[in-house]
Amino acid sequence: MNNQAGMSLIVKTITRLTVGLIFIYGIYIMLQGHSSPGGGFAGGVIIALSFIHLILAFGRKAVFQKMNEARGLILISSGALAFLLLSTLGFLGIFSKGLMPFSDAAIALLVSSGLFAMFLVLIGLASKEKKQ
């Protein structure tokens, strides 16, 4: 990655060490949500924060190569569709229980990609304005 973009070396090193931990913590919160405090929403927010952390440390360009608005939208809609599908299966009576971890995962996908896409849209708009 380009050394010029983003913050200083110290921040980047620490970020490399911690980002994975934050991500895994988010998944942990997501998976234990059906029986104790936590759940898809909180876990999704933490996962999104880990990605936002990456942007803050390494700069916009490093992330925009991997992720853009279109991909964010695909992730959002697939998360929402997965959640809708699971709940519709519940309404149709195909499943009655045991779906909570899966729907938590779907919510986490929706929330994390949604928050992250919001962040991307805002910094995309702000950077476009700076160029003009």
């Binding site: 929403f41 708009l125 476009k128 304005e129």
Partner: peptide, 24 residues
């Protein structure tokens, strides 16, 4: 309260987006 926080988040997001576009 959790629900209204989420609604507030999306409201603020739309507002900030509009503000940036208005500034443009």
């Amino acid at each position: 309260a959790l629900t209204t926080i989420v609604i507030g988040l999306s409201l603020i997001f739309i507002a900030v987006t509009l503000a940036i576009r208005i500034y443009e």
